[in-house]
Write a protein that binds this DNA or RNA. Structure first.
Lengths: 115, 115
DNA sequence: CGGAATCCCAAGCGATACTG
DNA sequence: CAGTATCGCTTGGGATTCCG
């Protein structure tokens, strides 16, 4: 009907850092989504997390956790005991991702997995 | 307090296809988020899309669009004219991603970009 | 204009071994 | 237990060229 713009998205300037892209860079790592998902509810030890995620290798789990830590999404608590004990949990900033992770999960269930 | 589980996330079986991971694989491609974002509001031609996204190369834009097409998220309409004209738009399935893309955007704005 | 094909470097990532 | 180190394959993705 009218030639007027019907959307607020069309001419959004993405050059030099689109928020959508930026967010995906933070949570889009190969294992980050799943990791965050498993930390949504509770603190987990390294080994627990690895078992929960499934097929991730130690190397990758460590790397992804370090990156999430650097982004301030995950907190790493080291207990000075032997054998070593390290617990991972979401920071407050990490908690704010909950709606996103939840949406990702429900969308995937509805549109991706056989049902 | 209690040792009872306080979350519904903890023991979710992710092995062999976690919904969160699956969804991220669909929208997590390097340019897919931004592409979807720019298609949220309106249909766009190839060239428009490329300019909107910014620094993406033709090759990558094409590749990512093909993948989104295969997932049934994006529709490709070819006009049999010369010079060629191709329009991209979201399918109905693609539209269902709107809440996710929107959330990604607002989260990124609030937590990632300087403010 | 919108794409396909080729080339090629760099990053990603798994496997394995070692360590405090 | 929770890492780190090294190796080497595989993949991603940019640059460029050609085409209908």
């Amino acid at each position: 009907m009218d030639t007027k713009k019907t959307s607020r998205f069309e001419n959004y300037d993405c050059s030099g850092g689109c928020p959508v892209e930026a967010t995906l860079e933070v949570i889009g790592g190969k294992w980050k989504g799943v990791i965050l998902f498993h930390l949504l509810g509770e603190t987990k030890r390294f080994g627990e997390l690895q078992r929960a995620v499934g097929s991730v290798t130690q190397r990758m789990l460590t790397k992804q956790l370090r990156e999430l830590e650097r982004e301030g999404l995950v907190h790493r608590k080291v207990y000075p005991v032997v054998p070593p004990k390290v617990e991972y949990s979401l920071t407050e900033k990490g908690q704010t991702l909950k709606p996103i992770i939840t949406l990702l999960q429900s969308w995937g269930q509805e549109h991706l997995l056989e049902r």
